[in-house]
Amino acid sequence: MSHSISRTSTAKDQRVAPMKTPSSSLFGRWLGPERMQATGVKVAIIILFIWGWATIDNFASSSNLHAIMYSVAAIGIAAVGMAFITLSGNLFMLSMAATAALSTIIFASFLYLGLVPALLIVALVGLIIGLVQGVVVGLGGVNPIIATIAVASIVMGAGALYSGGLTIVGKGDASWLGVGQLGVFPNQLLLFLVLAIAAEFVVQRTRFGRELRLIGLNRTTATLAGIRVGRTLVLSFVIAGLAAAIAGSLFASQAAQGNLKLAAGLDFDAIAAVLVGGVSIRGGHGKIIDAAFGALFLAIVSNILLVKGLSFEIQLMVKGIVVIVAVILGALAVGLRKS
């Protein structure tokens, strides 16, 4: 990429393209300050996996590996959606759990139409919720955290009004998505992989993706350069809303039920995956696929804690500590880059 830019660049291009091209050396691509954390997480996944295999009974059993695959799918999809928001410099979307919760209810309510129509309706709802936030944040210039908290409560309120706070049992068959497998891999996991790779491609290789990263790096510059800021931000929120809706469908499909409590904690899990994976909170730096690896790392950590018999609260605290350490290390790595 760096070659093609330098060959065709005019003076104007250079002024408006502050995006740092990654060092072309192998060392810089994997271990430079920008990529250090993302590489570290991948190494940590391998080490944790080997360590678990060698020392923990039942860790490598097929049922436990399946448990990891199921737990990473929905959270991974949400994390991929969240990464769009973080990359665009808008920190986090705190309405993902609420959107996913509402989606479980809508999915269960419309399952009688069949799996695909139910998924389409859920996706439409997620799209609309994302669109509203994209317009408010991207065009209205509202602080993304506050706006998404407000939307989260509107969505939760609407969900509670619609369901009456009850569990909705779907009248239909969602087993393809819920428990179906292709060979040894759950369909949920394959869906996550396809979406993550597609999202990575979109962000790295399309105009929308380049604009998104440029806005995240420096919104003022991007605006001055004539980048379509509003439109790109709206689209990123739409994608995140869609991701939350799909994550909710995965939760709902496992038991063909919808309940507002099903997606509790999804915001935190997605944020944790994004931060641990090595996507910069300041925006612009990092890859979508990093968030997916972050989700995998956290799923393995949670699974090890679970297999070792630690309580849910302890798991929550360990995850919190992992996130805090990741944020501090990430901020220090940024300092390294500047010096």
């Binding site: 209205g140 309120g157 509670a160």
Partner: peptide, 18 residues
């Protein structure tokens, strides 16, 4: 109901931040 209050409070916050 609690649900409609939640809804209303979210709407109020959204309008005031806008």
């Amino acid at each position: 109901s609690a649900a409609s209050m939640l809804f209303a409070n979210g709407l109020v916050l959204l309008v005031v931040v806008l």
